[in-house]
Simulated assay, not measured.
Amino acid sequence: MTTGPLLYVCVRPQQGAAAAEYESFRTAMKLDESQLGRHDLVREPLPAEALERYRGFLVGGSPFNLADPESTKTDVQRRLEADLERIAARAAEGDGPAALFTCYGIGVVTRMLGGVVSRRYPEDTGPVTIQLTADAASDPLFGGLADRFTALTAHKEGTGETPAGARLLAVNDACPVQAYVVGDRLYATQFHPEPTTRAFTERMAVYRDDGYFEADDYDRIAGRVLAASVTEPARLLRAFARRFAATA
């Protein structure tokens, strides 16, 4: 584990994809490696002192699915989800570290809050339109973003209702809950805020045969991704860094 005021928590078994995701977060947030540490939660449990050591956590995506039956999950996935819930619960308390959970991570937070995660709300791989809610205007992170913007998604599960205790910040038609906040320190997004379009196509290549899209459609979908403009999601990450990393 490397250290910094913020910690990227890897939940991807594919180490190459995880390393690239870390770099995407770090670059989007304009942080150096001393400001954004990283921990591979797939291979190492969360250290007990982590929740006191860091000012904030960034949780990336994963090929795991929270809605899969518990009987089909590996011991690693169950342990990993328990550690993620510890991070989310601590951030929800409001007097400790902040956290931003993305894609797979929003499901962890939703379940912790008693919400339902299911395969009823998947989104195709590629660019989608995100619409902010009225509550987003006064939020410290989302308030500076455009009311409508393009982001990148690729997921097999989602939720149709905001979980109890959360304020809905962003929506779209295919997956109604795109972002929410709990208190003022726990954020979750269904869309990926960190990758450039080029980085996203490289991630698509890693997961080409994992059922997110037809493998033969890679070139067509990659073309749509590369043609998209995804400026606002990175601004969200920079706002998180300014607010929660004292050295950012």
Rank of each mutant, 00 (worst) to 15 (best):
E214F: 11
E194F: 09
M1S: 15
E161Q: 14
A179D: 03
S71W: 11
R78T: 15
F25T: 04
T72N: 12
T247D: 15
L168Q: 11
Q14S: 14
E161P: 01
A179Q: 03
Q15C: 12
T27E: 15
R198Y: 11
E23C: 07
A137C: 12
L84Q: 11
L100R: 08
R111C: 03
T133V: 03
L41Q: 07
L58H: 09
S34Q: 14
R26P: 00
N65S: 14
P127Q: 04
F142S: 07
A154L: 12
L132Q: 13
L6Y: 10
D147F: 10
A179N: 10
L6E: 09
R55P: 12
Q190H: 02
Q77T: 15
L31S: 05
S62T: 07
F25P: 07
H39R: 04
R78W: 08
G114A: 11
V128Y: 09
L226C: 06
K30R: 15
A88W: 09
R78L: 12
R26E: 07
G126Y: 02
P195A: 08
G56I: 00
R86H: 08
A239P: 03
T201S: 08
G37R: 04
G37V: 02
Y8L: 10
G105P: 00
E85G: 00
E49S: 12
T2Y: 10
A241P: 01
Y121R: 08
E21W: 10
A215R: 12
F240P: 00
V171A: 12
T150G: 01
F240L: 01
Y8P: 00
R224P: 06
G105M: 01
L41H: 03
A239T: 05
K30N: 12
V59F: 00
V76H: 07
F213W: 06
L169M: 06
Q131Y: 10
A19V: 13
V76E: 13
T102F: 01
D219F: 05
T27P: 04
E81I: 06
T110P: 00
L169H: 00
G158Q: 01
A146Q: 14
L141Q: 11
A92R: 01
T3Q: 15
K30A: 15
E214Y: 15
V171C: 15
R238T: 07
C103G: 01
T150M: 01
R185N: 03
A174R: 13
L152R: 00
L6D: 02
V59E: 02
K73G: 14
E49R: 13
V11G: 05
L51T: 02
V177T: 03
S24T: 03
V177M: 07
D217E: 09
D219M: 08
L186W: 05
V182I: 02
R119Q: 12
V11T: 11
T153L: 14
D210N: 11
R220D: 15
E49H: 13
R120G: 14
